[in-house]
Design a protein around this nucleic acid. Sequence first.
DNA 1: ATTTGTGCAAATCGTTTGCATCTGA
DNA 2: TCAGATGCAAACGATTTGCACAAAT
Lengths: 132, 132
Amino acid sequence: MVARLRSAGLRPTRQRIDLGKLLFARGDRHLTAEILHEEAERSNVRVSLATVYNTLHQFTEAGLLREVSVDGARTYFDTNVSDHHHYFVEGENRLIDVDGKIRIGEIPAPPDGMEISAVEVVVRIRPKPDKQ
Amino acid sequence: MVARLRSAGLRPTRQRIDLGKLLFARGDRHLTAEILHEEAERSNVRVSLATVYNTLHQFTEAGLLREVSVDGARTYFDTNVSDHHHYFVEGENRLIDVDGKIRIGEIPAPPDGMEISAVEVVVRIRPKPDKQ
DNA sequence: ATTTGTGCAAATCGTTTGCATCTGA
DNA sequence: TCAGATGCAAACGATTTGCACAAAT
């Protein structure tokens, strides 16, 4: 983690190292600041919520995380920074990676003087209604 | 407007009628509660912000509006309820309809017991960097 | 008359900020 | 040493809520 932070141009402080470990220990994850903060507490990592927010944003700028806004309310951070899309589980407010590619056709040219910076696809899903 | 509200199952109150007129007078629009509230004030329509929020949500449930969450911070309501996608202008926090179709390929099957309720595509755009 | 909607102000929620203190290089 | 990070609590902006009053059926 220390090396990873250094090469991202971030000082390897205690809290950044600890949060980085929590974030990247398991595979791909989607989490909010709140969730990471709780997880830290459970792991006896002492960090303030403000620092969690700072760290998430710094990691995002450094390219270690990707921000996904899908919900209006909270902001999700994705430990998978590769180009991919998401299911959003309605009601549960949970993100799931779409495994496999979604092919997107030609996109009409944006207005003059503008260029495309990213294309995000969110597939909203919900439980299938019970068969009666 | 009165008829439209009635057939949507909403009581045609003064504020709903006035807000409805503001919303649907011009063509397709994307607005936040705040913006509609300001617009109402400018048009000498007296409504509280709370009522603007209520009305926007009721209209959405009634299918007169569509909610677009793209920003994390504020919620946009779209007077165009047909199936279409959006450009999101970074920095300006503004939505623009994508004219024309975006063709989306096969979407991998969602997890068991889940069904797709909607597919939203957001194309983030930004000013082209000045040529030096 | 009864139900439903409205306005206001206070409350809430996620997030940011100001500032004194601490820490890594 | 000292720029940069952290923690705390207060500030914030968008949205919601509780409740007394008003308007629609």
